[in-house]
Write a protein that binds this DNA or RNA. Structure first.
Lengths: 206, 206
DNA sequence: GTCTATAGCCTGATAGAC
DNA sequence: GTCTATCAGGCTATAGAC
């Protein structure tokens, strides 16, 4: 367990870790093997010793980035408490994790645009299936009888979209730098979702 | 006014209209001048007669795509009625417009990832500033005293994220094909936002 | 305004020495 | 496992005829 977190000296893994920021910034077609070789500090031919082609390297890099995020998310789903506490905790920690992982966010966006079914399935099962199950359980415990899948999408989307739009918000009415702070975003999303909670309770009382 | 909507026979505009789907599908670096020339049905050299380089052509294509969306959105912001009716109408029509414009959605996502400040400012002023103003007015009329900018981002994000995640939802718990329908998405988002409305009213009564 | 032809560079990928 | 050298083809962009 502790060995997995040790700084990596294996060349194949170093290639992945150094190429992830490049792919996040410029996408698959925007990064050349030359760029990667230069960043890693080895020759192009050496890259091909570890991966048969660029596509395989990209997929391996995605798998690595998604595994990292997976462990990070998993570790924050276990907290016990009331349903309200767990909801608040999920939103807060997920928002903080996304704020801490700009590369993952960019890769996620790029995969949603360009990923084929195989890559999207990997992304789903490695990263999002478990938090989605937790969210659906949470919706059940909170007596939210709206579609749990749609609600889970909405909650993750609410959080992620605030980060996605960060670069354009300075040009939109009311946009201010404070709006980028994860604490502000988390509080806002929790307010929105709590609204649903109360709303459905009201309807149930009719 | 009617002339603007007439089918275009000007080569420079045909180039834009035929290249927009290519850029939407594969991004700037994923489309070559060869691809565009082939799709338009002219030679590469002819492309360079109308645009000085690939970058200029891409920016012109973005401007064209965003203008189209701008007029489409503007035409649905004028409807009168109570604040609740206008909210419902905005969500419904915006969701429908996004459902009808997959190319615009893809270009928007790509620009959020790769656009520089100049391009993002164009995107903001051409497309999003006006609906944002309408949403902020709406939030005021509904006595929502939460941050209007954050709420506007959240509403557009709620809608857009359901489309963004369409290809991956089949791999997530509870995902079903019906969830892609704009009517379902619009109703779900309206339910979420109405929840806020009731919630804030409750708080105001305390 | 459109064409053919091409320059000059960059691309992914390989061969073979060490 | 890493290197240098290289290939064949794609890339953006241009020249010059019609």
């Amino acid at each position: 367990m502790s060995t997995k977190k040790a700084p990596c000296t294996n060349t194949a893994l170093i290639i992945l870790e150094k190429s992830i920021p490049l792919f996040a910034k410029s996408g698959f077609t925007g990064v050349s093997m030359r760029d990667i070789a230069k960043t890693v500090g080895i020759s192009i031919a050496a890259l091909y010793h570890h991966y048969p082609d660029k596509q395989s390297m990209y997929i391996a890099a995605m798998g690595h980035a998604f595994s990292d995020m997976s462990t990070s998310i998993h570790s924050s789903l276990e907290i016990k408490g009331s349903a309200e506490e767990r909801l608040s905790n999920f939103i807060t920690s997920f928002t903080q994790q996304m704020a801490d992982s700009p590369d993952f966010r960019a890769l996620l966006q790029r995969e949603l645009l360009d990923g084929d079914d195989e890559r999207l399935k990997l992304l789903a099962t490695k990263v999002f299936v478990e938090p989605f199950k937790a969210l659906i359980d949470l919706a059940h415990d909170l007596y939210l009888d709206c579609d749990a899948h749609l609600l889970a999408i909405s909650m993750t989307g609410l959080i992620l979209f605030h980060f996605q739009t960060a670069p354009i918000r300075q040009f939109l009415p009311g946009g201010r730098p404070e709006h980028d702070a994860p604490e502000i975003i988390a509080r806002h999303v929790l307010m929105l979702v709590s609204g649903v909670f109360n709303n459905v309770q009201q309807e149930a009382e009719y």
